[in-house]
């Protein structure tokens, strides 16, 4: 084989390699409840765009190439993305617990929800909990700031007793600033005497 032939062969090979170069794959999934979700716009460095707005719509794009619509089957998705999908964290859940007026004691009807909270926390491998305390508008703002924080801390303490690391629980008090139900000042409102807990 002459040098020229070799050179052509090499050139053709390089050309083919460039065409068949690695392509990134992007797939839009439906929401976890099966409904159609939002939009992903795939754009290359030249500003060429493919918009994905239907569940299972897909696009492929090679470096320097134009993004192309692509199709992919559910079984290919499951196979290609099994690792990433299996590692997906569960959706954050939130709980609201209510308190006896002026105190950090839960009303008995919140016992059930407290149990649900403990279960949600126990079900997670890694967990982060945000606890936000609130009060109604009875009493001074500064007192309510303190009370709301103490409520949050009371729940945070219960969580650490359950075995969660202190560093994984954030307790804050919002006082009477963020009522669930708007009232005039000095109105006693049971729905505002609460702690909201988000488990991630």
């Amino acid at each position: 084989m002459g040098h020229r032939k070799l050179f052509i062969l090499a050139a053709v090979t390089l050309f083919l390699a460039a065409c068949a170069g690695p392509k990134d794959l992007i797939v839009l999934l439906p929401n976890e409840d099966g409904s159609s979700s939002g939009v992903v716009v795939v754009e290359n460095s030249k500003g060429e765009i493919v918009t994905l707005d239907q569940p299972l719509a897909a696009a492929r794009v090679a470096k320097g190439g134009s993004p192309e619509q692509a199709s992919i089957s559910q079984s290919d998705i499951d196979q290609t993305f099994s690792g990433a999908l299996a590692a997906q964290p569960p959706a954050p859940v939130s709980f609201v617990l209510y308190f006896v007026t002026g105190s950090t004691r839960l009303v008995p009807s919140s016992d059930e929800n407290l149990k649900n909270l403990f279960e949600a926390v126990a079900a997670r491998q890694t967990v982060e909990v945000q606890v936000t305390g609130h009060t109604d508008r009875v009493g001074k703002v500064t007192d309510n700031d303190r009370l709301s924080l103490r409520r949050a801390q009371a729940i945070a303490k219960m969580l650490t007793v359950q075995g969660i690391k202190t560093s994984r629980v954030l307790a804050v008090g919002r006082g009477e600033r963020e009522p669930l139900v708007n009232t005039a000042d000095e109105v006693s409102e049971s729905r505002n005497r609460r702690v909201e807990v988000i488990v991630r």
């Binding site: 979700s37 939002g38 993004p67």
Partner: peptide, 22 residues
Amino acid sequence: RTPASILGVRGTRFLVKVGEEE
């Protein structure tokens, strides 16, 4: 960002795989 593109995202669930040399 992927090696070949940039994705703009609005309220959604999606997957990305970076192309690999065969």
